[in-house]
Simulated scan of single mutants.
Amino acid sequence: MALQVEEKHELVKVARPDAAVGIDLGIKTLAVLAGRDGVLDAEPNPRYFDRAQNQLRRAGRAVSRRRGPDRRTGQQASRRWEKANQARNKIHHRVANLREDTLHKMTTRLACE
């Protein structure tokens, strides 16, 4: 059984259409926002993002201590390297998702304001 519904969406007007903001994405902070009046506002990195970065740093060190593949000599990677590399890739994926989610939430909030 299929059901199709047509719904009319009302356009939502922006609260302040004349407002403008300059955004500078950073490393130590997520972003620095500057309004027309010159007021600076720093958007800090979320705590969970910093914690994920630390996990990624630790996982990278664990991978570097294992015997990885060597193309020059044809040496195969050890099972421990593959397992550690898989864990690092999982954390990489999570960090990428966290970064994308945080930027999406920030840009949506700024567009609504």
Rank of each mutant, 00 (worst) to 15 (best):
P17G: 02
V21S: 05
E100C: 15
V63M: 06
M106G: 11
A59F: 03
E100L: 15
L56H: 07
L40H: 05
A111W: 02
Q55F: 07
M1R: 08
A59R: 11
S64G: 00
P69Q: 02
V5F: 00
R80G: 06
L56A: 13
M1P: 08
H92E: 14
Y48C: 14
G35A: 12
N45D: 08
N89H: 13
D24V: 12
L3I: 04
L30H: 10
V14C: 06
P46D: 07
N45V: 06
E43N: 04
V63R: 01
G26E: 11
G60S: 07
H104N: 09
G38L: 12
K28R: 11
R51Q: 15
R57P: 00
K90A: 15
P69G: 03
A19L: 13
G35C: 09
A20Q: 08
D50F: 05
A34V: 11
T108K: 08
G60R: 01
D18T: 10
T29I: 06
R58W: 02
A52S: 14
W81G: 14
L56R: 12
V21W: 01
W81L: 05
H93I: 08
R61I: 02
Q76H: 08
G68H: 03
N85V: 00
K83G: 09
P46W: 11
R79V: 00
R47C: 14
D24H: 12
C112L: 12
L40T: 05
L110Y: 02
A77Q: 00
M1G: 15
Q55N: 09
R58C: 12
R99V: 14
E10D: 05
R66A: 12
E10N: 02
R109Y: 07
V12D: 03
E43R: 05
E6A: 07
N89F: 10
R80Q: 10
E6C: 04
A52R: 06
R94L: 15
G68S: 05
K28L: 05
I91V: 13
A34I: 12
W81Q: 07
S78G: 11
A62M: 03
N45Q: 12
C112N: 07
N54G: 14
R88Y: 10
K105V: 01
A111F: 05
M106N: 07
D50I: 04
H9Y: 11
P44M: 07
N89T: 08
D101F: 08
W81V: 04
D70P: 07
A87T: 04
H9P: 02
R79Q: 15
R58P: 03
